[in-house]
Design a protein around this nucleic acid. Sequence first.
DNA 1: TAGATTGTTAATCGATTAACAATC
DNA 2: TAGATTGTTAATCGATTAACAATC
Lengths: 219, 219
Amino acid sequence: MKTSKDKNRIPEATMRRLPRYFLQIKRLLDEGSRYVSSKKLGDYLGVKGTQIRKDLSYFGVFGKARYGYETLSLAKAIKKILGLTKQYKMVIVGAGNIGRALASYSGFHTCGFDVKYIFDIDDKKIGNIISGVKVYDFNKIEEILDKGEIDIAIISTPENKALQAAQRLKDNGVNAFYNFTSAELNSIEDVFIEDAEISHGIFKLAHRLRGKWPRKESD
Amino acid sequence: MKTSKDKNRIPEATMRRLPRYFLQIKRLLDEGSRYVSSKKLGDYLGVKGTQIRKDLSYFGVFGKARYGYETLSLAKAIKKILGLTKQYKMVIVGAGNIGRALASYSGFHTCGFDVKYIFDIDDKKIGNIISGVKVYDFNKIEEILDKGEIDIAIISTPENKALQAAQRLKDNGVNAFYNFTSAELNSIEDVFIEDAEISHGIFKLAHRLRGKWPRKESD
DNA sequence: TAGATTGTTAATCGATTAACAATC
DNA sequence: TAGATTGTTAATCGATTAACAATC
């Protein structure tokens, strides 16, 4: 496991907030706001102004005293930080309920994430078209994918197939995984993993409902 | 915003790990393991043994020196902590791609989360049955729901409808929300909110692919 | 017993925030 | 100018982990 002890490393907490900053700034842009202060942006998101200024300072993003941040250039800066200036090619592995929903998810396409292939092992699904994307036989994946062609794989298989699927994708040159199963993919070396297991969130809600605190992570 | 400064408060970071502990222990139970050490459990999850022992100590969960933790009683303890000993009644608001996938998501039902109603405002969807659950007219929600009947609402509407939908649900006695939209629901007072916006995760992956660090949040 | 593993303490590390001089 | 807001420093707060006596 390659851990960077880089002094210039971006704090994880900052990275968790950045997508929310980005989406809120896009909303402000849509409304025609030209400037936004860290205070005002923070109020929208339940974050303190100092926090936002500090987060942005890691990236050398500068506002103007008295005016705040220019929305358009801030949006561009965060877009660059988040790596949204290039296109990403994705595959979805597992054409179940979640996989199909993700294939149709508009948020990917509008931000430069293109689903190129969907894979499954079910003959009834292979050959189908989901949101304009064809379902291929996962067992023929080596014939279909060029090495290095795919940037990100979404894993939406049954839990007990997730690890072997991800490993096989890695062997084919994929090294970023968005994992929607509850499987632990930690054992795969030298790849990026983002977990998005749905039941985790509902467990946390259940805990808070029982215990009655706190309302949000950020509280 | 009611923020507990309780000294006995469970750290957020602990709460984020607990669901993963729970699922891994269930896997171990399925394999027939009767005991597991904090070291071994941690190795499965990429977490240090001390971390696990500390997390569990907040809840007064005790292992046995030399043996570790008894899997069955540990599973029961975490189940209780997470509030999974009771049933939760849910509604899904928005019968789009994500809403339909969630209605069919087996992870909810098997853990005691029951989807009672699905709501939408589209006449073409109202009256349909999705995974055995009927789609109702959101505009008649007050006639359909008894106050206090519903524990958790899943928000899977378009972004620009999310806030008003959640507010209307709150007015009908719902005070926990699992938000799958990118809308910010912070402005609703005195409710529990868990965000699960899909694009946030893919943004973080894109950032790491660009910058090449770090592989996982936990690294 | 011997040794593996516990729960807890204290040290370290990282993230948040109050305070404030600089500045537009 | 006057005052709002910035970027940064230093203090605080919270989370992780090394160390270790206790214990099964």
